[in-house]
């Protein structure tokens, strides 16, 4: 349970880091928090020839509000966000999802952007950014910066739209908007374990109570975060009685995997229940948000 030998680079600027990735391509791995990469290396599931340790890049841990979004820099630890009430208040879905990400001890090291780049299909942060319709900022020395919509970023198990010479330099989570409610639900064997199923939900209500958007994503049921097609339920006033039907619709086209932690049938039942719970809470919080507006 020790990593295989690797050449180690610790760049002091982003340009140096990008040059290394351009040089070594898929031989190199970026080491940020290391809470997924190092276990994989210890177990020899990953044997990168070159490690590019980005932990000493300056200015990379910035977390800031800008243009209706929360921008999270590449080295911001998950616990940094948890310790920032302003950030949690700006993105309520993130505030609810973060406590489920690993354990307190791993969140002290693990980065938000690293979790996105790792793209575990049961991970909370990829699910949250997909449901919020956020974006990931990737940079390479050859092509500069590009923003990738979260919906396009995650491709399959541990696969993203990132090229070998690119680093995730930041992520943008849309901040709470007027009339929106958010909820995150998850079930795992123990708190902090990988989610068997996770659900993130965002609902927007017009002042007259009509739902203008119903976004619901499922984690742990496919090879990437699954955004349920629920547009049929927009433009209507939704009551508690509608929610079982919406939850059923949300899981209608999933084909969850069976493994040691749960059968496909179990996952589907769990997804339905958690979806209904998330819808209930998101709708209630959107109503509160709307009442706040009316007063």
């Amino acid at each position: 349970m020790k990593p295989a030998p690797f050449d180690y680079y610790c760049p002091r600027s982003l340009d140096e880091a990008l040059a290394l990735l351009a040089q070594y391509g898929d031989e190199a791995k970026v080491l940020a928090g290391g809470q997924s990469l190092v276990p994989a290396m210890n177990m020899r599931l990953a044997r990168p020839g070159v490690i590019v340790d980005v932990n000493r890049l300056p200015e990379a841990a910035v977390i800031e509000r800008c243009d209706g979004s929360l921008r999270v820099g590449m080295l911001a630890r998950q616990a940094d966000l948890e310790r920032m009430p302003v950030a949690l208040d700006a993105v309520p879905l993130l505030a609810q999802a973060l406590p489920h990400v690993g354990h307190w001890q791993t969140r002290n090291r693990g980065t938000v952007c690293g979790s996105l780049a790792h793209a575990d299909p049961s991970a909370e942060l990829p699910l949250a950014i997909v449901v919020l319709d956020g974006a990931i900022e990737a940079r390479s020395s050859a092509r500069g910066t590009r923003w990738i919509a979260a919906g396009q970023f995650f491709e399959s198990y541990f696969q993203t739209a990132l090229q070998n010479d690119e680093i995730v330099v930041g992520a943008s989570f849309p901040a709470r908007r007027e009339g929106w409610g958010y909820a995150f639900e998850e079930f795992a064997g123990r708190h902090g374990d990988f989610a068997i199923v996770a659900v993130a939900c965002a609902v927007a209500l017009e002042p007259n109570g009509v739902a203008s958007e119903v976004r619901l994503g499922l984690g742990g049921v496919a090879d990437k975060p699954h955004l349920a097609p629920l547009t049929a339920y927009c433009g209507r006033v939704l009551s508690q009685r509608d929610l079982p039907e919406i939850a059923n619709a949300a899981v209608a086209d999933i084909e969850p995997p069976s493994d040691l932690r749960g059968s496909a049938r179990y996952r589907r039942a769990l997804a339905t229940n958690l979806a209904q719970r998330a819808l209930t809470r998101a709708l209630a919080s959107a109503r509160t948000a709307c009442d706040g507006l009316a007063q």
């Binding site: 180690y8 610790c10 080491l31 290391g34 809470q35 190092v38 276990p39 210890n42 340790d53 932990n55 616990a79 307190w104 001890q105 791993t106 002290n108 090291r109």
Partner: peptide, 18 residues
Amino acid sequence: TVRVDGQAVRACLMLAIQ
């Protein structure tokens, strides 16, 4: 679990060189 610069972290998930 040990403390590195004030934070509780897993010593098996950090490299000594870091």
